[in-house]
């Protein structure tokens, strides 16, 4: 693996980080495993595609559209799907499966819409005014979008980790994750925290969607599905309940995939995330830094 591979892996890892971070926050603090996250990711980018079809927009505008789409979609799903389920079912544990199932069902809708419009073809931001610039030094090629991704990924990742560990609101979020009842007693507004977390998660999905689309120049309606499973691998690897874990997991997976791709044929790459998930759950379900209880009571 050479230096270029390292740069590529870092970029890939940043995308994984942005995507998985949203999922991890919601899962870790609200107990909701949002299976629609991948679909939202894709649809946010899709919205950027649609809008730039009418009006050529610069990158920040496209990203903003994706971020807002992601946040709104996630909030809508929370309001129309997950909350009704939670209200109906007494324990979060029983609701878990129904929420997962609802997420899978809901995820099908944006994918179907995107497929219908694009006729299952790739779509990108061709009309965007963004222009890729390539920088070369020390024998490596790096584009401006890659730099942006790296900055966004590491910045938001580390920023979130610090915020959770240090700020008052962050502590509140952690409390909700550990013990919602106590947190409520302590005055943490669960409902508002929930909405804010969902919105942030959706925004991250949108951000990663837009950035990945710029990076790859195009994605297809099913791009979100595969990413979902990888995010799960990232979270399990890093350990549920730990933001630093997500950061670590994202880069470890990205590097593992890049290495396997470099040394074998591409067809084994997806096996890595699946294999990781399976082996981890078999031997060390709490991952590297995880805290949550994984055993059946």
């Amino acid at each position: 693996m050479n230096l270029q591979d390292v740069v590529n892996a870092m970029t890939l890892g940043s995308i994984y980080l942005l995507f998985a971070l949203g999922m991890a926050l919601v899962w870790g603090t609200m107990g909701i495993l949002n299976f629609a996250h991948g679909s939202i990711f894709m649809f946010s980018a899709f919205m950027g595609f649609i809008v730039t079809g009418f009006v050529p927009l610069p990158l920040p505008a496209v990203v903003l559209i994706a971020v807002v789409t992601g946040a709104l979609l996630t909030l809508a799903i929370q309001y129309f799907a997950y909350q009704p389920i939670l209200k109906r079912v007494k324990s979060v544990a029983a609701a878990e499966l129904q929420i997962v199932v609802a997420g899978i069902g809901i995820a099908a809708v944006p994918v179907a819409i995107a497929e219908k419009v694009t006729l299952s073809n790739n779509f990108g931001f061709q009309n965007s005014t963004f222009e890729a610039e390539v920088f070369e030094f020390a024998g490596i090629r790096i584009t401006n979008i890659m730099i942006l991704i790296l900055v966004a990924g590491l910045g938001l990742g580390i920023g979130t980790a610090l915020w959770i560990a240090r700020s008052r609101r962050g502590l509140g979020l952690r409390a909700v994750g550990v013990d919602p009842e106590t947190a409520a007693l302590m005055g943490v507004d669960r409902k508002r925290m929930a909405l804010a977390t969902m919105a942030f998660s959706g925004a991250l999905a949108g951000l990663s969607g837009a950035l990945l689309t710029y990076y790859l120049t195009a994605i297809n309606p099913h791009s979100g599905d595969g990413l979902l499973l990888k995010a799960f691998a990232v979270i399990i690897l890093g350990g549920l309940g730990s933001v630093v874990g997500v950061i670590l997991g994202a880069f470890i997976l990205a590097f593992a995939e890049t290495a396997v791709f470099a040394y074998t044929s591409g067809t084994w790459v997806s096996a890595i995330s699946f294999g990781l998930i399976f082996i981890l759950l078999l031997v060390r379900p709490q991952g590297i830094l995880g805290k949550k209880e994984v055993r059946r009571t």
């Binding site: 495993l33 499966l97 209880e293 994984v294 055993r295």
Partner: peptide, 8 residues
């Protein structure tokens, strides 16, 4: 494994 983890 419990619920979700077993599923995954």
């Amino acid at each position: 494994l419990n619920g979700l983890y077993l599923a995954m």
